[in-house]
Design a protein around this nucleic acid. Structure first.
Lengths: 205, 205
DNA sequence: ACGAATTTTTACCATTTGGTAAAGCTACGA
DNA sequence: TCGTAGCTTTACCAAATGGTAAAAATTCGT
């Protein structure tokens, strides 16, 4: 017997929930949780405010739903770190994947950044449940690589922090970066070269 | 004849404006601009809301004043980059100063991060006027070091971004860092070792 | 085509919040 | 000590905002 408390969503439900989440991503990522209003989200989605509240239990529900859905996508590049590959190339590929995400999904990056910046008030359980175990398992993997002398001795935790920080910077601080970068040069191309060189030099001794 | 539009502030003025800014730093850095309320700031400062508005022209005025005052402190470590020193040691010392600031002034770091994250709506003129010229001048300095073969060829802009990102990360994403770091190890000590090693390896080729 | 279920709109509401007017209090120079 | 300028409080207000009730419209299975 199927779960009676969950009915399969109609086509309209699917479409509208998706529209709302897309609009909310736009608005939340630009103005933060408190700075975003339901009216803005409704207007961006082309729906009325009460209609939005027909699909979600409230502002916080929309925010949490967004964050939860994004968590998967966000952790994927780290999941792909392959124990059977070459350590240096694996980590450099991870750096590149993270930089690509900053380029392709800046709104998602800023949404996360805003939430973490305020102390992760709505996302902490999600972080404990998904980020923390993955982080620890990949740290362990890097430690085995170090033990096998395939990487120089370093603290995997700070290595990962450096990767996160230096790649996401291009999305999260985009307004500053674009202010300081010459418009004539491709920011992400230069960033890729720089970061690849930086991490390669550190990982190859 | 002294400027008639500016009277010297009384002792009470000085004390209360300082108290308000300190309270505002606490509240703005925790909740962001929109998330902070005048009531919170007033309560934190131990003053009434109308009394706060006696000293400042409004919420935005407090925020802008804070940001402007902080700009100086924030840029100091970069100003200290000495053209006459050894390039590698100068840059590594800069990395350490930035990391020390993340440790000693996390609220200031988060205040800036929040403002930049939202596109610097209130700070852009300040950034244009102070950050941009300093950034460009220090980039030029690094380029001369490279031209003298005292540093490997690299893009100074991305180098500086990497330094900013990887050091401020420990303040701005503190909630995530503390979630993932073992409590038994000193985060900033480990970060310092890691970042010094990383940038040294890159700068010494 | 018809009735039931789903979706959308209209008309509200209570709270929060940035801000103000004006009266009252305090410090301080003459 | 007295008057004035500077400081603080009380009592408000208008707008914004998250949210709701219920009627109206639409969709969909039969």
């Amino acid at each position: 017997m199927p779960d009676a408390s969950v009915k399969k969503p109609s086509r309209i439900q699917q479409r509208n929930r998706h529209t709302i989440l897309e609009a909310a991503l736009e608005v939340f990522s630009r103005h933060g949780y408190r700075g975003a209003t339901l009216d803005q989200i409704a207007s961006e989605a082309g729906l009325s405010k009460p209609n939005i509240l027909y699909y979600f239990d409230g502002k916080a529900d929309i925010h949490v739903t967004l964050l939860s859905q994004l968590m998967q996508t966000w952790l994927d590049p780290l999941v792909e770190l392959n124990p059977d590959g070459d350590p240096v190339e694996e980590i450099l590929a991870y750096v590149q994947r993270k930089l690509d995400m900053a380029q392709d999904f800046p709104r998602e990056s800023r949404l996360f950044a805003g939430e973490i910046l305020q102390g992760a008030p709505r996302m902490r359980p999600e972080l404990e449940a998904h980020l923390k175990p993955l982080f620890n398992s990949k740290c362990a993997l890097i430690r085995t690589w170090i033990a096998q002398d395939r990487l120089p001795p370093l603290d995997p935790r700070h290595l990962i922090f450096s990767i996160w920080a230096s790649t996401q910077h291009y999305a999260d601080f985009e307004s500053q970066v674009s202010l300081l970068m010459d418009d004539s040069t491709n920011t992400f191309e230069g960033a890729s070269k720089h970061l690849q060189a930086m991490f390669r030099s550190m990982l190859t001794r």
